[in-house]
Design a protein around this nucleic acid. Structure first.
Lengths: 184, 184
DNA sequence: TTCAGGCGTTCACGATCCTGAACATGATGC
DNA sequence: GCATCATGTTCAGGATCGTGAACGCCTGAA
């Protein structure tokens, strides 16, 4: 509860996948300021810290109320606000956690616009993947099998089997998917 | 939610009935610092603000999460932490609210040590007063009436009638009392 | 009245912050 | 290889903060 301001800021910034410079640009401060604060080489004024947090955005109360994870403890919970949206337009997804290099499992909260197609060339790669349709309708092709899935339906298969996804409905299709090892 | 740091600090300090100098002494800063912060003539560093709040004591998260009352709105709720203990030793009491000059009703959360006596000379003043015994035992004398009250018992009388309180038990006696107009 | 003490405010100056520009490193592509 | 880009870090200097000591005001006691 009384971790340093620097450690807190670094944590929230990295959870948002922002670089020091990008955060500095959004906040209207210099990247040096971010660096100095995060390394506890300076003791920021409340005003400047607030400006920095406005670039997240996050309030001061929320910032200081943040529970810092144990040193070396593995991150387990991911508030919705931290599932940053990566794509835009036809496909967008929100990844659960960052730093996929160290993990064996990747989980995405995806949204497919109507007509989206993962491609005529069927995908094939190592690992396994699966998912659950939350809303909308999705045509899933895996090997010789083809099915249209709706809310509550799910899939799970060996990724080496050629596969393809198409949103054949007329509304967005939301899916929670998982794959191992992380692709992308 | 985004009131100035100065307004917030002034509010919490006054709710604790602390002067700028007293808070400065507890916090290990100078009174000038408190004055400058409260008047928003400076933008304190997180570190110095934390030192100041340590003198309250209050955490940064709680400080920034404080809801500021509407301008001119009357204060209605008083968290237990704000009922500051005023006395020490034989009698101590926690007053509900401050600035009694403007109020018609005064409420105290009192604790009487064993043997405490409000005095042989019976009290008498304008107004009415009453209370409820929370724990312990208290001998209450009002005019010609005398009674030993225990937990759950209560009293209520015209303050002009001479009265006296004595803790005749062998443990602390806790009472919630009220009087109008505020005495003391 | 005068004095003492507490209150919040103001001021000059030494300490600290924040900036703008450089630096060092690593990843990516030609 | 080289160039290019993005990353985090370091540094000198102007801007700002925090201190210590004053100030004016008020209240209560002698």
């Amino acid at each position: 509860m009384d971790a340093s301001v620097g450690a807190r800021l670094r944590m929230v910034r990295e959870r948002q996948n922002l670089s020091q410079r990008e955060l500095a640009r959004r906040a209207g401060v210099t990247n040096a300021t971010i660096s100095l604060i995060e390394s506890d080489r300076t003791n920021p004024s409340v005003g400047s810290l607030k400006r920095v947090l406005d670039g997240i955005p996050m309030g001061l109360a929320e910032f200081f109320a943040l529970e810092m994870p144990e040193e070396g403890a593995e991150r387990v919970f991911f508030p919705a606000a931290e599932l940053v949206e990566i794509g835009r337009g036809k496909i967008s997804y929100r990844q659960v956690g960052t730093d996929m290099t160290r993990r064996a499992l990747q989980i995405l909260h995806e949204r497919y616009a109507p007509g989206t197609d993962s491609g005529k060339v069927l995908l094939s790669h190592e690992g396994e993947e699966g998912g659950v349709i939350i809303s909308g309708r999705m045509e899933v092709t895996v090997g010789e099998q083809r099915r249209i899935l709706g809310p509550g339906d799910a899939y799970l298969f060996d990724s080496r089997i050629p596969h393809r996804f198409r949103n054949v409905g007329d509304e967005d299709c939301v899916v929670v998917s998982a794959c191992t090892p992380p692709s992308l």
